[in-house]
């Protein structure tokens, strides 16, 4: 990450000039209602900080992240559901703020790609096994009981 991330923090600090006082979620931002606060944490844990770009707003020290954390809490206090709160943010900042991209046309390849790759790989492996069986050399027949006992004998001899 990490090195480049920190470089970015530095650059962001220089560019945007907004080196907030704190880091990440601050005690004074928190809601009194623990259930509501837990929901707020859950939401802000999935929103990307736009200034620093590779942190959640929950983890970020940036000013804008602070504002967004407060905003999320305001929406929840006003009675918005989690999805309404998220919709409020994406209406302003677009899907880019979502660390978990929504499943829709443009992200189908992303979400179903891994499964597709696994299936292609699995089917490919099975086909490969079968072809090898057909084209390959005669497979040795399984050992008979007599052979097995002889092998066992040889092995014990070999060891002693």
């Amino acid at each position: 990450m990490t090195r480049a991330l920190s470089f970015f923090i530095l650059i962001a600090a220089l560019t945007f000039g907004a080196m907030g006082p704190g880091f990440a979620v601050e005690p004074n931002e928190r809601l009194a209602d623990p259930a509501l606060e837990a929901r707020a944490r859950g939401i802000s844990d999935h929103l990307r900080c736009l200034v620093c770009q590779n942190e959640t707003i929950d983890d970020s020290h940036a000013d804008l992240a602070h504002d967004l954390r407060v905003l999320v809490r305001e929406r929840l206090t006003a009675g918005d559901s989690d999805s309404q709160t998220i919709a409020f943010i994406t209406a302003r900042y677009g899907d880019f703020v979502l660390l978990k991209p929504p499943v829709k046309g443009a992200t189908l390849v992303l979400w179903y790609g891994p499964l597709a790759i696994l299936l292609i790989g699995a089917v490919g492996t099975v086909v490969w096994f079968r072809r090898r069986k057909m084209t390959g050399v005669e497979e040795p027949a399984p050992l008979t009981d007599v052979e097995r006992s002889r092998l066992k004998q040889m092995m014990t001899e070999g060891e002693s």
């Binding site: 990307r48 677009g94 899907d95 880019f96 660390l99 991209p101 443009a106 992303l110």
Partner: peptide, 9 residues
């Protein structure tokens, strides 16, 4: 569109 792919993915 511009999207982010973060840790939840």
């Amino acid at each position: 569109a511009k999207v982010s792919v973060g840790y939840p993915f």
